[in-house]
Structures are given as C-alpha cells and as structure tokens.
Amino acid sequence: MESLDGYLDAILGTVRDVLPIAIILFGFQIFVLRRAVPNLKRVLVGFLYVLIGMVLFLEGLEQALFPLGRLMATQLTDPVFILGDAAVDHVLAWTDYGWVYLFAALIGFSTTIAEPSLIAVAIKAREVSGGSVGIWGLRVAVAIGVAVGVMLGTFRIVTGTPLHYYIIAGYIIVIIQTAFAPRIIVPLAYDSGGVTTSTVTVPLVTALGLGLASSVPGRSPILDGFGLIAFASLFPIMSVMVYAQLSEWYTRRRHDRGTGNE
C-alpha cells in the first residue's frame, strides 16, 4: 500500500508540473495563434509518454537510488568513518576528506550523464549543429564540469571559504574563455550550466552538501550547506568551452596534416 501512495504522489506531482505548461501551450495555440495543432494526436501521445516516463523515473529513483545515495552522503561525511577507530581528539584537516571529494566528483559525473534535460539539449544541439556537436561529447563535457564543480564545492564547505570568491573567479574565467572560444559554441555552453542541475543531480548533491555542513566542525548547514548547485551550474560552462576548443584544435591539426601530406 505504501508504494501505491508513492506512485500517487509521483503522479500528482508530475501532473502539477505538466499542467501549467499544457494550459499555457494549448491556451496560446487556441486563443492567440488560432490554429489547430498539427499532428495533434502524436503530440498528445508524446505528452502522455513524457508524463508516464517522468512518474516512473522519479518513483524508481526514490525507490532505488536516492535513499542509498543520501545515506551514503551522511555516512561518508561522518567523522567516525573518516577517522576509523583512531584518535578521537584528532583534529580533522581538509586532507582527511579524500573519500568525500571522490564521491562528490563521481556522483556529480554520473548523475549528470543520467539527467533527462541534458539528453534533450544534446539531441537538439546535434540536430542543429548538423552533427558537429556530438551527443556524447557534449554530455561527457558537461558531466566533467559538474564533477569538478561539485568536488570543489565540497572542498569549499570543508575549508569554510566564502562562496562568492569562487563564483566570481569562475565568472572571470568564463569571460576570458568566451573571448577565445569558437563563436558557435558560446550560447550552448552558457545553456549547459542551467540544464545540468535538475531531477537527478539536485537531490543527491543537496544531501551531500547538507550532510557535510552538519558534520564538519564549525560549519552550519544553513549558511554553508548551500552553494553546491551554484558550482554545478558554473563549471559546465567552462568545460563545454574547453571541449569546443579542443575539438576545434584537433580538427585543425588533422586538417593541416592532411594538406601537408598532399
């Protein structure tokens, strides 16, 4: 019975999510644009697929991965785990959190690969770029960015340095990169910052931040627990631009070599 309640909650939540969007879309279509939706049946079937897909996806995550992931986040940040049974009066240094950094990076990477909205943007980007931006290339680039971002974010919580120094430094790097990156990738790179953090990433990363902030001495979950999402949405901008620059450089080199052989 309990799991049935879970489904009901998930269905209600998703309907509440989709309903305003459906009202806006169809309202404008009917009252402002005043034309029938082409392939209406297909579109409605698509909406139904999205609805059912989201319900199953969220319910499955809630059943399988989230409880384990959240538990892991609290266990890994627990001083008892970090120190083993060793000296209780040992003061923890930032170097003692090795497993936490590794977990942060890996969970950032793997949740981003599974993120449905990133899949959507990657499909669109390949279509629009005529295949020069690959689905996997973009997704892996974004995932590496999130991994580095979340890892640095946990380091910040452990050391207690102010969030905005990191973010402002990040902004400066993004601006410098923008000047050198291929024009065509810049808007997509900026977009990928916002895309990465939704359904899968946010719950696990938030749990990690709050767990860490409540177990590191001197941190408050309220003041220091936030900020990981900000890291996770800033770093993909950089990694996608790096990916574009590398692939441009690679193509040019191959091209140069090709003409050199002739």
């Binding site: 579109v43 139904l48 999205v50 059912i52 897909g53 059943q63």
Partner: peptide
C-alpha cells in the same frame, strides 16, 4: 532492482515523448 527497472523504463519513455510531443510543439 525494481526501482532501477522503473528508472530505465521511465527514461526511455521520456526521451520518446520528447521527440513526439515536446520538441514538435
């Protein structure tokens, strides 16, 4: 295992629905 199965099924349906419904509209 059942949870993971649901997640896989859900993601498959979502991506299909994306191409049928959300992108075209």
């Amino acid at each position: 295992l059942t949870g993971t199965l649901l997640v896989v099924l859900g993601l498959t349906l979502f991506v299909r629905g994306l191409e049928l419904g959300l992108f075209p509209i």
